[in-house]
Nucleic acid binder design. Structure first.
Length: 443
RNA sequence: GCGGCUGUAGCUCAGUGGUAGAGCUCUCGGUUGUGGUCCGAGUUGUCGUGGGUUCGAUCCCCAUCAGUCGCCCCA
């Protein structure tokens, strides 16, 4: 016999039932918190036309395109090329533009879907993964309060996830206007400068400085100031103010830049709005700039405090006008996205999950013999009506075998319909019970 | 796309120039209807793929594919 030996497809994760059970709990929790802030749910197709994804110009992302196997040679010119979306922001922009007249603004939506990126998989990096996005989009102008609401929601979501109890995380906030404002008068490649400053935590201040000084343009004389700025971390607006002042005293920043002043002001205001969160939950970190080019103001990143190198598990920011490629309106927005799969897989590998239950069943109904099948089925029906999940064992096999089955599946209770008794597998106790009145003991 | 490491049973891995092993898992049993422990028995592999060296290769060489880590980039 020749069998095809399956191999996992790298970067396309799948979980065992016990892990999937936790994953579903996570999604339920996330949805509940999002909805508690009034966000509504939408779902967009897995694919967009390639023209939509590349509307802003060239696409340097690793995007999967879809192709029909039986496509004929002449077809290619007629059909729009389809691509799997690599984030949920571009589909959102298209969605908002398309349904503009039917939406109520500010439009607050959440979206929990898979996205695809054809990058090389690594720890915490997949080619197919879930993102949980929330965004607020408004017409013409969007209040700054929303920039502060994002981290508050995320903090509530993340700190309430099963398995996160022992994890320390930190939301880092900055504003792109701060560094960009200072770079305005300087002849340099701004994107390249930000890209280098973004690495400061990884490569250190010294190497960051050297990289900046190796750039062409007028940057080298200014590099040490930028490094000092990017190194700033502050847990509240007072500390941020002070640290900026220190640098200003020493180097006489050209803080006359309108953009710089606005960026600092917005960032301080956000920190003040978030003062109700535990200290250190959200910090200002001026090295955060984010790679995506559409962010224009506030930017977010989230890391494990003890392992920032794992990468951001939740990022986002503010954009002035995302949908300009699709509609002739000004639609500013702010959004943030939980890297669900990255976060989930880390906690899974660390063994943070209680994976004792491999089935949603609360009760295994024993089938003692064929004569008791009706009695057993009936008891199961009554219990199901009372919102218990009940599995009726499939064959009148030895009790030993049926119990072993419950044990292996992690089903916490076993019901003996002939004896009118329930066994608590964990406590190893067995007691009389009726399907109409039985209640599990509280933990 | 670039660089390092790896590729042997379902899983984790050992091993030798002369056609392979351990642990775990799994299945069954340990008589009279109550799981996890323990004991006993049993199943499992084209030693990633193709070529070369050799009397002979899973072990040496080359290529290739796949995995993995780092870079790039990002959730």
């Amino acid at each position: 016999m020749n069998v095809y030996k399956p191999k996992p497809v790298s970067g396309f994760p799948e979980w065992l039932p016990e892990e999937r059970l936790i994953e579903q709990q996570w999604m339920d929790h996330i949805r509940k918190v999002f909805e508690s802030y009034g966000f509504c749910s939408i779902e967009t197709p897995s694919v967009e036309e390639l023209d939509v994804i590349s509307a802003k110009g060239e696409v340097d992302k690793e995007i999967y395109v879809l192709e029909r196997l039986h496509k004929e040679d002449g077809d290619s010119g007629k059909e729009a090329r389809l691509a799997l979306h690599f984030d949920q922001t571009v589909p959102l922009a298209r969605y908002v533009a398309q349904h503009f007249n039917d939406l109520v603004f500010p439009f607050k939506r959440y979206q929990i879907q898979r996205v695809w990126r054809g990058e090389r998989p690594q720890a915490g990096r997949f080619r197919e993964f879930y993102q949980c996005d929330i965004d607020v989009i408004n017409v013409d102008a969007l209040p700054l309060h929303f920039d502060a609401e994002m981290p508050a929601i995320i903090w509530e979501v993340l700190s309430g996830l099963p398995g996160m109890e022992t994890e320390k995380i930190q939301l880092r906030v900055s504003n792109r206007k701060i560094l960009l404002g200072l770079l305005d008068d300087i002849d340099c490649d701004q994107v390249e400068v930000l890209r280098i400053l973004d690495k400061i935590e990884k490569i250190g201040e010294q190497e960051t400085l050297e990289l900046l000084q190796s750039l062409s343009g007028d940057i080298s004389g200014f590099a040490h100031v930028l490094v000092k700025l990017a190194a700033i971390k502050a847990i509240n607006s007072g500390e941020l103010e002070k640290k900026l002042q220190d640098i200003n005293d020493e180097y006489i920043l050209s803080s006359s830049s309108e953009s710089y002043v606005k960026g600092v002001g917005d960032l301080k205001a956000i920190l003040n709005y978030l003062s109700h969160l535990p200290e250190g939950a959200v910090v200002a970190d001026l090295s955060i700039v984010r790679g995506l080019d559409y962010y224009t103001g506030t930017v977010y990143e989230t890391v494990f405090t003890d392992d920032p190198g794992y990468g951001s598990i939740c990022s986002g920011g503010r954009y002035d006008d995302l949908a300009s490629s699709y509609i002739n309106k000004k639609l500013p927005g702010v959004g943030i996205s939980i890297g669900f799969s990255r976060l989930f897989d880390r906690l899974r590998q660390q063994g943070n999950f209680d994976i004792s239950r491999k089935s949603p069943a609360d009760i295994l109904m024993i089938l003692p013999d064929e004569e008791h099948r009706e009695t057993a089925a009936n008891a199961a029906r009554i219990l199901r009506k009372r919102n218990f999940n009940v599995e009726l064992y499939h064959a009148p096999q030895k009790i030993k075998k049926q119990l072993s089955y419950a044990e292996r599946k992690g089903i916490p209770y076993v019901w003996f319909p002939d004896l009118h008794q329930v066994k608590d597998m964990k406590r190893q106790t067995q007691a009389e019970a009726t399907p109409e009145h039985w209640q599990p003991e509280k933990d």
